[in-house]
Design a protein around this nucleic acid. Sequence first.
DNA 1: CCTGTCTCCTACCGTTCGGTAGGTTCATGC
DNA 2: GCATGAACCTACCGAACGGTAGGAGACAGG
Lengths: 203, 203
Amino acid sequence: MPRLSPNGETRQEILRAALKRFAHSGYAATSVQHIVEDARVSKPTLYYYFPDKAGLFQALVSEAHDERYRLMREAVDSTEDFRAQLVAIVSALFRYFLKNRELMRISLATAFAAPGEVPSGLRYLDKCERNFEVIHGLMKRARAAGHLDRRFESRELAFGFYGQMNLYLMAHLTMPGGRLNRPTAERIVNLFLSGAAAKDRKA
Amino acid sequence: MPRLSPNGETRQEILRAALKRFAHSGYAATSVQHIVEDARVSKPTLYYYFPDKAGLFQALVSEAHDERYRLMREAVDSTEDFRAQLVAIVSALFRYFLKNRELMRISLATAFAAPGEVPSGLRYLDKCERNFEVIHGLMKRARAAGHLDRRFESRELAFGFYGQMNLYLMAHLTMPGGRLNRPTAERIVNLFLSGAAAKDRKA
DNA sequence: CCTGTCTCCTACCGTTCGGTAGGTTCATGC
DNA sequence: GCATGAACCTACCGAACGGTAGGAGACAGG
């Protein structure tokens, strides 16, 4: 049989198969055997490209977190208007979710899974916090600029917004009913801001 | 060695050990062997009380979901005032969380885990929806009664509230920093309602 | 033509998995 | 005292697990 990939094609094939399996069954319930079968590759080939099962998983999860981070930063930088930034964040994550549902699934599942479920060496918590801090920092600045109700701490505001958005994403994983589009993003921001925005009428 | 439990003591011991293991490592990564070692019981004893590993897990998860459901219903029935009902729900779940952190962990993790991660026969989705419907129904009635802004659908409102509350719980699993007490519950409801409550000033 | 390196293979390692066969001990009913 | 059934045990099963030893085929430089 000819060498399939002097480039990185085999590696990509493994990643693709692994993503599908991990997204469907989680880390522990996924076997390396199934991955190599899906990728039409032998087991030593997998271990040629990746140090072990955990390393393969980490490559996927890191990519997902980093891409979410990049998208959120990009959304924040896309405009100066605070409301528009929020809409851009939600909207960007919705689009990413619809295109990369499986990556998003392992990313979210990993974040809230039991500590021993996922490989221990994986530093996913840092990346989770980093992503949250994008929102948190945005809230801090908006609060300082007077766009948000000062009765609430920036952390509370970030929780309110982040929580609502995340529930939409998670709900879509288990019940893919709702429509994750820009109008929905705008309505989410409206619901959040109608309370969080500082009222200039009273106090 | 004497028979330890003519009552249900051994069964409880198994459940206790299983909860600890499942909460720490998730379903797939937990082995029956470890459970029976923790419970100081032999493997056939476990299979004497439970049909299989999945049945043992289901017993725990069902209990957690049912208890959450009971608490939320109780909170709703505790008062007529809508705002007080919301605070009661959040506050009750916070208390339950602090007392039953491990049960809450497997309950939440199961809800958002990959479909193949958890035993397939487990009907947890029904219970998740049932719990969500407690909130959803409450929002429906409050919206119809004019307590909530009619520009938002009841489902959106439920998502906003439920999402925010859930993030507090989930965040406390990974970063047990924040304080899950009644003042926090009130602030969450305030943040949610300051937007969702119908303003009688304009429109 | 030889040698090394990159890529990928078959075959196998020891371990652990979920689950069971079959037997033993105790409390009780008769 | 003796059968019965609940409560539990030791010892083991086949299968699947993550991972590896060792080699084969293709291509490069010398």
